[in-house]
Design a protein around this nucleic acid. Structure first.
Lengths: 116, 116
DNA sequence: CAAATAGTTTAGTTATAACTAAACTATCTT
DNA sequence: AAGATAGTTTAGTTATAACTAAACTATTTG
């Protein structure tokens, strides 16, 4: 189980990271994944999914017209933990940013009045 | 110690991986690194070193006209082990290839005589 | 079976990363 | 100080990755 360079490359892309995050703990359809990233076309998402599939990082299952994808966490070895910690950290950053935003509005520290 | 996405990106590049490998356990000069990759210019190497430096993955030290670089293994967290295992695996592959090559020449297993 | 839905694939475009050539900085040698 | 050595930086080029638009496959629904 050799941890190919291809894997590193595959998870270095923010787009593919986002996809992996979406299908990390539960399978999702290609359409769901696409709707979660409205800034790109369905085709673009499909191509990235194919990339992840080729790298062996996701599994696909067809059901009716849908294709369900899910992350193969076990294939990522130590990378799995790393990605999770990255996502956790992103959350933390977001929260921090929100708090900063809050304190900017609220009266926590009086701002010097603008003098004309 | 947040394991930024930038780190992933930095070590996904084969060129930068090769550089890290060269300065993994001992510092080396920029020139040494360049001579080890004769297919690119010194400038290209210097730019990659700068990239690694900006990502915080290497340290630099100036001495006279030389600049010594070394990998900051501790900054890579779990990635460090991963890279090492990748390199080990590459070695293993190389050795295997060499053995195969050897057995193709040597008399390990008698080849059927070519009949004219 | 025609139209709709879900997705993939292809061919061409655009954005990004890597690289080159050459100018540049700094240190050392003569 | 002139030349050589070690390296960096800049501006422009080239290679690669990501994306789009549109054609395509397959399944479902009326």
């Amino acid at each position: 189980m050799a941890l190919e360079p291809a894997i590193l490359n595959a998870i270095a892309s923010p787009r593919r990271q986002e996809i992996l995050r979406l299908i990390w703990r539960e399978e999702q359809t290609a359409g769901f994944i696409h709707r979660a990233m409205p800034d790109v076309t369905f085709g673009a998402v499909s191509l990235q999914l194919k990339g992840l599939l080729d790298a062996g990082l996701v599994e696909a299952r067809a059901e009716n017209r849908n294709r369900f994808y899910r992350a193969k966490r076990e294939a990522l070895g130590p990378m799995a933990e790393m990605l999770e910690s990255m996502w956790d950290d992103a959350l933390w950053k977001l929260k921090l940013a929100a708090e900063l935003e809050q304190s900017r509005r609220g009266p926590k520290q009086q701002r010097k009045k603008k003098r004309k």
